[in-house]
Design a protein around this nucleic acid. Structure first.
Lengths: 220, 220
DNA sequence: TAGATTGTTAATCGATTAACAATC
DNA sequence: TAGATTGTTAATCGATTAACAATC
């Protein structure tokens, strides 16, 4: 790729690299806020706890953003990675499940910072329908398909149980949902192709911590 | 390791393997609930969307749980993996930060299923202190160190901002916290050694979904 | 120019997959 | 016993690290 070109995915980028991009973005944001103008891969690697080689290798998946003898311009690189991640794109999201987790996600996440608009929050529990969450009224899941037909969301956030997720998925895909932020235990990726699924399994994460605590205790 | 021995970590187990263990545990739980008595690595691999080789390789990091010509006993393997993960151990946890996310974690997670007891929930916001969350009263962070000295928690769940996390970490480690379930953007692992840190970065996860949606759109 | 640091190629390391003898 | 399936070794694949020529 010619230098200076605004880069997007160059061929196939590995999952390992993609997973590191948001972290680069965060560190660069902090550096920018601290007034740092330029940084070398060596300095950044020390701050982030990885190798300079890896940083250069990762960035060069998308283009040559640095300058020999100088390093990287913090602001430029920050913005470039934002574009690579697609944070400047706009997405229309719906949230399914207004339980504790769903409500927390709705209230806590800065969707706008990543180009997401939360179009609607749905639940099938009559006790929750009509309740206000972050300025939005929880809607009845019964009207979900109709809502999709009218508002054309492209992303669904699944904060509902496994079976409910399985039952709704086909309709959502049929109605044009291309991306799922999946907090349920239903494995969408096994049943559908050509959609983007990002799983968040909090229980698995806590179990992993269990394992590590154990391993730590056994070391001594 | 001799067959039949109750296995724990056998030498060093890679992160990749550890990350897959909770998923095996979930699938086995479902199989058990469905009344399945035995399963082969081939059948399980088809259900989970990975290779039979990988399953056998993963399990054999901890011991020989199968039987040639038969496969694996679902109940035994389920329980074995639970032990490997250390879900039978008991842990004393405290939760820092009773904002939307903290409260959702407190209400939503099944801590008991992984041997965790939530000893206390802390916040520095006077508007939240004294409020009830899941049967617990939110305590003032001012009393956190005193609380640690008395109750000896060993795990902290960080649902507080980056700077607050950084400021509290040293005290927590000094007071005997060995494990962190970290939802903040503060990178504990860079500053402390010999502690278990499991990071959950919801923002990074959402950014990754952004990237994948983008990649999907460009394919066509 | 001299020094610094990139972009990129080559070497290493680790993880996944394939193969198959052991054995239930 | 014959068939099935494991445990394990060997082969492959991919990701990380090291090295260095290019160049600002």
């Amino acid at each position: 790729m010619p230098k200076g070109d605004t880069a997007l995915a160059k061929g196939n980028v590995s999952q390992s690299v993609v997973r590191r991009l948001p972290r680069y973005h965060r560190f660069l944001k902090d550096l920018l806020a601290a007034g740092t103008v330029r940084i070398s891969s060596g300095d950044l690697s020390a701050k982030m706890g990885l190798t300079a080689s890896q940083i250069r290798q990762d960035l060069n998946c998308f283009g040559g953003f640095g300058q020999q003898g100088y390093g990287y311009n913090v602001k430029d690189l920050y913005e470039e990675i934002g574009r690579i991640l697609g944070l400047d794109q706009t997405h229309r999201a719906i949230l399914l499940g207004a339980g504790n987790l769903g409500r927390a996600i709705a209230l806590h996440m800065d969707f706008a910072a990543r180009g997401f608009t939360l179009l609607g929050i749905f639940d099938c529990n009559p006790a929750l329908v009509g309740m206000e969450v972050g300025g939005q009224t929880i809607l009845d899941s019964a009207g979900l398909e109709e809502f999709c037909a009218v508002h054309h969301p492209d992303v669904a956030i699944l904060c509902i149980p496994k079976e409910a997720a399985r039952e709704t998925a086909a309709m959502l895909v049929r109605r044009g949902i291309r991306g799922f932020w999946n907090f349920s235990h239903y494995d969408l990726a096994l049943d559908y192709e050509g959609i983007a699924v990002e799983n968040v399994h909090l229980g698995d994460s806590l179990s992993t911590l269990c394992f590590r605590l154990n391993a730590l205790a056994q070391e001594s």
